[in-house]
Design a protein around this nucleic acid. Structure first.
Lengths: 215, 215
DNA sequence: GTCTATATGCCGATAGAC
DNA sequence: GTCTATCGGCATATAGAC
């Protein structure tokens, strides 16, 4: 048995290549040909190992999104049960952090995972029905748990307002995840400062937005 | 002369159909065949009138995005010159409103424009290079003006932080523009309340995020 | 300006040899 | 499990009749 995410098998070579090409070109824009060429395997291998291009997409989600959502869920459930025990309200920012921090950590530590993160950042808005459907299927229980936790953190907020704000926050998150901003920063004549962390900036922004009482 | 955005000419029938199909399926996912069929014109008409599929995309942006950005720009420039005259700082929320309100208004008043809005909401994150490049080309001066106006509204904020927060805000905006949330609302068991305006909710969220001093 | 017919090419998927 | 060869389909784009 091998618990590494990737090894040198044909299957994993295809998964690695697909992750990277999907991230760059989207699901529809990526051809099985391009994927197998990058992986250095025969074009027929995708159908042999994954049945279809869609099957390959599902395998990618199995490999990365399931473990990622497991981490997120455990942290959020921990926050919820601790709040229940102490009869307090969870803090909005900690709930959001529990969702987002594992994503950033995966991006930094797991080689190749940054392609996956970029891909799901945009799968969320991907016009291709197949990609969106697969992605939403994998995300549904996670989204419900996040919504519940934010409900607990902001118990007096009308549910529809909470829902919309969660949409806004997820839009900000998804857009941040897809691709890096280095080029855009330069285009605005801004020098990047490595002291500031995108994670903390995003959490501040989201938390303020979620909790806003701005008039 | 005819100053309506759309009439019954072949050209406009194609633009209307393309707008709607691009919105649903993205640029790559939309075929010229599907567009001409929906428009009720011959398949060769796209190349005759617009040279290519990409030319068609550019014509769509010409028709909608240029006038929309003109409205946005005029309002933002008005805010900037008024602030200069009165030696005050523009208000963040009013700058954001000047950018977003014309979008919402276009969506409500111009028939068919809601397809365009949904499309640009996602063109922003569209993995297809062609669509993203065309869109960004049309948006560049607009983005720079918006950044300048927010700089004026938040003069003490470090430029890199301002830049990132603008990215977050645009992510929230783009995600909100693409498609309607009715289905998702129902999936969360939330009854939609027409009294609350997505525009105001979004502006509150964005303004709080932009101005956040949350620790 | 609109049509048919077609050129040319890439797509996902598979059959069948090894 | 990996290969070659190929199928059938759909894509964009165009040539040329009307």
């Amino acid at each position: 048995m091998n618990d590494r995410v990737s090894d040198d098998s044909t299957k994993d070579r295809i998964l690695d290549a697909a992750e990277s090409i999907f991230a760059e070109k989207g699901f529809k824009g990526s051809s099985v040909r391009a994927i197998t060429e990058k992986a250095g395997v025969n074009i027929a291998a995708v159908n042999y190992h994954f049945s279809s291009k869609t099957g390959l997409l599902e395998a990618i989600c199995d490999r990365r999104l399931i473990p990622l959502n497991k981490l997120r869920s455990e942290r959020i459930k921990g926050i919820l049960s601790e709040a229940e025990k102490s009869k307090t309200t969870p803090r909005t920012k900690e709930v959001l952090r529990a969702f987002i921090e594992p994503t950033m950590k995966l991006k930094e530590t797991e080689p190749g995972a940054k392609d996956f993160i970029a891909f799901i950042g945009r799968a969320f808005n991907d016009p291709d029905g197949t990609a969106r459907d697969v992605f939403l299927k994998f995300m549904k229980p996670m989204a419900e748990l996040l919504y519940r936790a934010l409900s607990a953190a902001l118990p007096d907020m009308p549910k529809e307002l909470l829902f919309w704000r969660l949409q806004f926050a997820m839009g900000a998150f998804g857009h941040t995840m897809q691709g890096d901003m280095t080029g855009a920063l330069k285009a605005f004549g801004i020098e990047a400062d490595t002291k500031v962390s995108p994670l903390e900036m995003l959490l501040d922004f989201m938390t303020a937005g979620m909790e806003s009482t701005y008039k």
